[in-house]
Design a protein around this nucleic acid. Structure first.
Lengths: 235, 235
DNA sequence: ATGACTAAGTGTACAAAATACACTAAGATT
DNA sequence: AATCTTAGTGTATTTTGTACACTTAGTCAT
């Protein structure tokens, strides 16, 4: 039957998966959810993702799904790649999981992947009732994930780094208010290098993308830093 | 009925569309095909694209479809974005065309877009029997295309320019052998600027991405230029 | 064969950007 | 008042980018 259909157009399931990177002044993490099948399989970890609905566009879908699964909202998600290997769902556990939650478990699943970057403290995810739990996993210690999600995470990470190296600025991917030290730390974490404080700031000044706020850092036991926001421009 | 399905998972058609840019030492063009419906509509232009088959991955699909529609082969196609607005097929002519050639004309169509850049002389497209004809259209004079293909072309062009500006090198998107002047011309066409010959070459030298061949340009009525290829590395 | 034509190929001086580097300032805590 | 902690700032050097003009190798016409 697979053979008979091989040269026919597919009517695949289409899903979105979200790679949400979080940083906490120390490490870069990824948001994962625990999947429990109705069968006997041990729970496994995977990216938050689900099928696209009939009347929503892809961006809306990503936003909705992330919210439904983790209660995270107000996060800018950037589409970065579609993954569509015919056998990207290729083990029993994954198939069982699809059977548990999806309509056409036998059709292939093409997924459109999004990534984002958030400050962990500002976004405390909670698992949806049906989604096991939600965890922040260190990017350097990611276990085997369901589907092809390890591949998706790796490509997202590569894209994130490119974004930082070339555009040189974290742009949409940050909370509203931040200090320059936080911003620098973030670049260091993402790029995996040490940066010079003065040079980093010099570059920021010229790039003209930051605006100082009338507000200072609070709750620290030392000289409070100036808070900044991005100058509007991008969506 | 659309309402009833609004919050159901969609089983969309999934297609790929190819934005093939061509350059001819003068202008940047895009490869378009003419679509004829079985109805009374005038033919319209669109990107070469079609539905993904059951057992092929997205890259394979793009390669196959481009070949089927235009007989172009051996071209590196780079996936750059999925387009999935629910109403991206939103006029009668497009719907009629889908009805003519597709299985599930009423389902939405999510498309995965690819782009490429080729030297026009090296690739002479011929229309498939069922595909009206194939034309190279100047990018500065693109008429209204079917579906959301104008949007797709614009985003592809933006991506192409980014690629040239940041990576600074045309990489996979070129024929095997070329002269430095050709390469420079290409950069000038894509970026829409004039470049200095000596500076351009100096940069190339440092970037270390080119290898001189044992071969010189032929068929010109002046001093023949050295031919180069890219040093392997990328796929 | 000579001269004229055409694009190839090459170097240097100047400007701009990136890097390396260390001390003073402001607030909090005792 | 003294101490602790992170914020905040400038200059000298190196690297990279830019502006600019002449000589060379081949073809074509006489």
């Amino acid at each position: 039957m697979a053979d008979k259909n091989a040269s026919r157009p597919s009517n695949p399931n289409v899903s979105v998966d979200c790679v949400v990177f979080g940083f906490d002044d120390e490490q870069l993490k990824v948001l994962l959810i625990e999947q429990r099948t109705s069968g006997d399989f041990a729970p496994q970890l995977a990216l938050p993702g689900d099928l696209v609905l009939q009347d929503e566009n892809l961006d809306e879908s990503a936003t909705r799904i992330l919210k439904e699964l983790t209660h995270l909202e107000g996060i800018y998600l950037k589409q970065f790649k579609a993954f569509g290997d015919p056998d990207r769902v290729n083990n029993l556990k994954d198939q069982e999981w699809l059977r548990t939650v999806r309509e056409n478990p036998d059709a292939r699943v093409i997924t459109v992947a999004y990534y984002s970057l958030v400050k962990m403290e500002a976004y405390r995810p909670e698992a949806a009732s049906f989604a096991g739990k939600v965890i922040w996993q260190n990017v350097s210690e990611i276990p085997e994930l369901g589907f092809d999600h390890n591949k998706i995470v790796n490509e997202a990470l590569a894209r994130l780094r490119e974004e930082f190296e070339f555009k040189n600025i974290a742009f949409e991917l940050l909370p509203k208010k931040f200090t320059l030290t936080m911003l620098q730390k973030l670049h260091e974490i993402v790029l995996g290098v040490q940066l010079d404080k003065r040079n980093f700031r010099k570059k920021l000044k010229k790039s003209d993308t930051l605006q100082p706020l009338d507000e200072k850092q609070s709750g620290v036991d030392h000289k409070p830093a100036q808070l900044f926001k991005y100058t509007s421009g991008r969506k």
